[in-house]
């Protein structure tokens, strides 16, 4: 039961965020109108991306440490393979959340900034805001990670080189998510020309209590659901690895 607790908590928190986020009466925030409710779904997805990519990079670092002859690992003959699977599967789920974050962002952008444009126009959905571009670049960096892995035949070489690449990919998220979008003017509430003045909108205390009571549980809920998805993917791949090895 204890190992299922985080899944139950995750389901409960996301359900709470979905129901309360859409039905509670909330004050209108800036120019966003009622579309500001998307803050409960769009923003938590990016939190989940960062957590999942952090899990991925930690496993990549662990993999590189384990290949060190001085490092003793105690997971039988599968230790290295399992660590590589953990890094890869976590990045995969992270990319899924990245895509979902981009889609929810595009819909929000359409309603908030481009509702006067016809839906058939590309700029009705994509306004080339610095943070949109940075999010897209981060997605491309991780797609390149998958592409890199697919080019190797040798499992060990694949795992080692992609582990090194994964470290660079994660480090690139820091300027892409936390520095560049805050330095440039843009339409997001975290842009340099916003009320938060290039800082975090949430941390600057701009998020009222009505929002916070749904926003923070939603973040935890999405992270837990993402972690559950990663767990299932990881366990499936580990079972496949062991069974294929024994066949």
């Amino acid at each position: 039961m204890a190992r299922h607790l985080y899944k139950i908590v995750g389901i409960g928190l996301v359900l709470y965020a979905l129901i309360s986020g859409l039905t509670t009466t909330l004050p209108v925030m800036g120019p966003m109108g009622q579309s500001n409710r998307n803050i409960f779904y769009h923003v938590p997805m990016w939190f989940a991306v960062v957590v999942l990519m952090a899990v991925s990079v930690l496993n990549s670092i662990r993999y590189l440490r384990m290949t060190d002859p001085d490092y003793e690992h105690k997971e039988g003959g599968y230790g290295l393979g399992i660590t590589d699977i953990q890094a890869f599967e976590s990045a995969k789920v992270g990319v899924l959340f990245n895509i979902l974050g981009l889609i929810t962002g595009m819909v929000w952008s359409r309603v908030t900034w481009s509702s006067h444009l016809p839906a058939s126009r590309f700029d009705a959905w994509w306004i080339w805001d610095p943070i949109q571009i940075c999010a897209l670049v981060s997605l491309l960096i991780y797609l390149a990670y998958f592409l890199l892995r697919s080019t190797f035949q040798d499992e060990e070489q694949k795992a080692k080189i992609s582990a090194v690449y994964n470290i660079f990919a994660f480090v690139s998220l820091i300027p892409l998510y936390f520095i560049v979008p805050k330095m440039l003017p843009g339409a997001h509430p975290t842009a340099a020309n916003s009320d938060a003045g290039g800082g975090s909108f949430v941390m600057a205390g701009k998020l009222g209590g009505d929002f916070s009571i749904i926003f923070w549980p939603s973040i935890l809920g999405f992270i837990l659901i993402g972690y559950w998805l990663y767990e299932i993917r990881k366990r499936t791949e580990i079972a496949k690895l062991i069974l294929s090895d024994e066949a």
Binding site: V28, P31, G33, Q34, S35, V111, T112, S115, H116
Partner: peptide, 10 residues
């Protein structure tokens, strides 16, 4: 446009 948007979404 913002007023319109709020009314419309509400």
């Amino acid at each position: 446009m913002n007023i319109f948007l709020q009314t419309q979404t509400q």
